[in-house]
Amino acid sequence: MKTIIISFKIFLFLTILTGIVYPLFITGITQILFPAEANGSLLFKDTRLIGSNLIGQQFDSAIYFSSRPSAISYNPLPSGGSNFGPTNAKLDSLVTERKKQFIIFNELDSLTIIPSEMLFASASGLDPHISPEAALLQVDRIIKARNFNKNQKQELIQCINNLAEVPQFLWLGEERINVLLLNLETDKIK
């Protein structure tokens, strides 16, 4: 009986400590140290919320760089991938279809090697990045759709170079570019 009472008391104590005090303490301290990150790295245009730095968005218009395919069409409630296995016929035909679409949409040579991430859906369905190569493959199409001249094209390529992220501390992770930020910069080119 004594054991049962102690169980209850210690459960109550640890619940208060690790379930209430600990998360509140972390919230308090990070709201002071990293307020932007703690609140979702949100992006505003004027005062309007247009998304988050970290959460990818769907882009299908010809004037924007496309994001990766997403099993959830970039709707975060809830996040997730396709969970198709490597011998799934549906995945096989999806990839063939995406390859065809990417080549037609960007008016590329049919033998162009398309980076894998543009053909396969991400794990979270919210991947904000593509590789810089995948961005460069889309440049000509965007220039055409936006009627950009030579200078503007240079500016656009400069944007890609500026926004391309090298591996963190030079050795962690992959080279990548944030599609949402890239499209925001593209919109700014006059």
């Binding site: 972390i26 919230t27 990070t30 709201q31 990150e37 703690a38 609140n39 979702g40 949100l42 992006l43 309007r48 919320l49 247009i50 998304g51 988050s52 959460i55 968005q57 769907q58 882009f59 299908d60 218009s61 924007y64 970039y74 709707n75 975060p76 409630l77 949402l180 499209n183 925001l184 919109d187």
Partner: peptide, 20 residues
């Protein structure tokens, strides 16, 4: 993220709604 905010609704660049 570390907060107690309600889910935020963003208007994406292409004009869709995205609940974060």
């Amino acid at each position: 993220v570390q907060n107690f905010n309600t889910y935020e609704t963003a208007q994406t660049i292409q004009g869709a709604e995205q609940v974060i």
